[in-house]
């Protein structure tokens, strides 16, 4: 496969995953702000912070209003990671590597791009949820098309590899939202507001039911963290993402014989997660753990590009 093609496929995977996550993250932020006793920084601002978008925000991030944040993260084409940029770039890449995609997969991305402004214009101030639902629909349609129509070969694996790397990063960022959002001063850890915030986080990634299936007891912070970091059966947990990355790398290895730094780094990250437990993570600091994970994952991304000659 052409290296340029592999790169485009990988980035299609990443951009679609990122678009989905960004929309969900904002949704979670808005829901935080619906809880009583919210104080500064607000939920939407912690979502903003956790996404990393504050690093590239052109204005004063502390003064950014809800509407400006939503606009910047969703609809601003000058922001390379906004939902519209992600859909635009995925569609551009899909056109460039059309021959590597099935008609169904291409059409999902093409239609999302064609419909974007129409959907955006329909977003009224208080029904951002409809936009999130549309983004989720697009992403499900795209993944369904991948699953149902793509050959099980390199083309699919590069898309999945991009999606898994992005998803790992996103989950780490999502968990970190709780680090940025402060509990109101009179509330205590484990109290009702704290719990409601964790529930919102779970719900934003459609994991609330999963939590109830796995954990019998009520909602506890470290169980949520455990679910999203260590549980193999949870599809967006760090453990599940890194296992998938390793699986895909091993398939690519057997199809084209290339092995290198990406394989080694992915195995190292997987070992680090497997040999960990939630108590140790909390003791040494959840935030620090998540930041380190993002650094490792990012470095893995660079090694993938090098290994496959992007």
């Amino acid at each position: 496969m052409l290296s340029r093609t592999a790169s485009s496929l990988y980035w299609i995977g990443r951009h679609i995953e990122r678009a989905d996550f960004t929309a969900r993250l904002i949704d979670a932020g808005l829901k935080f702000d619906m809880l009583p006793f919210s104080e500064s920084p607000s939920g939407i601002q912690s979502a903003f912070e956790a996404s990393g978008a504050t690093l590239i925000y052109p204005g004063d991030k502390a003064k950014a209003k809800r509407k400006q944040i939503i606009n910047f993260m969703c609809f601003d084409e000058s922001n390379q990671s906004s939902v519209i940029s992600c859909f635009g770039k995925a569609r551009h890449d899909a056109r460039a590597v059309r021959t590597a995609l099935t008609r169904e997969v291409f059409e999902e991305l093409n239609e999302a791009w064609l419909n974007f402004r129409k959907v955006q214009n329909a977003v009224k101030n208080d029904d951002f949820g409809a936009f999130v639902a549309w983004v989720e629909d697009v992403v499900r349609g795209f993944e369904g098309a991948l699953h149902r129509t793509m050959l099980r070969n390199e083309c699919l694996w590069f898309i999945r590899l991009g999606a898994a790397v992005e998803r790992a990063d996103n989950t780490a960022r999502l968990l970190d939202v709780k680090y940025h959002v402060l509990l109101p001063s009179k509330e205590h850890v484990g109290g009702p507001v704290d719990q409601a915030q964790w529930t919102t986080l779970l719900r934003s990634v459609s994991a609330e039911t999963a939590y109830r299936w796995i954990y019998r007891e009520g909602l506890v912070a470290w169980d949520v963290a455990e679910l999203l970091i260590l549980k193999q059966e949870m599809p967006r947990s760090l453990a599940a993402c890194i296992s998938e990355i390793n699986l895909i790398l091993s398939r690519l290895r057997s199809s084209n014989g290339r092995t290198g730094a990406a394989d080694r780094k992915a195995r190292a990250i997987e070992n680090k997660i497997k040999n960990n437990n939630i108590n140790t993570i909390f003791q040494s600091g959840l935030h620090e753990f998540l930041v380190q994970f993002q650094v490792d994952n990012n470095s893995l991304g660079h090694s993938i590009a090098e290994q496959f000659l992007f």
């Binding site: 496969m1 052409l2 290296s3 340029r4 592999a6 590597v97 059309r98 021959t99 390199e154 690519l252 084209n256 014989g257 290339r258 496959f308 000659l309």
Partner: peptide, 22 residues
């Protein structure tokens, strides 16, 4: 294969494309 100019290069008077396998 659909290629752009930057996907191709010439070495020893032969044309090659850059693939994930070399």
């Amino acid at each position: 294969e659909l290629v752009e100019g930057s996907d191709l290069f010439v070495k020893d008077r032969k044309v090659f494309m850059r693939t994930t396998e070399g």
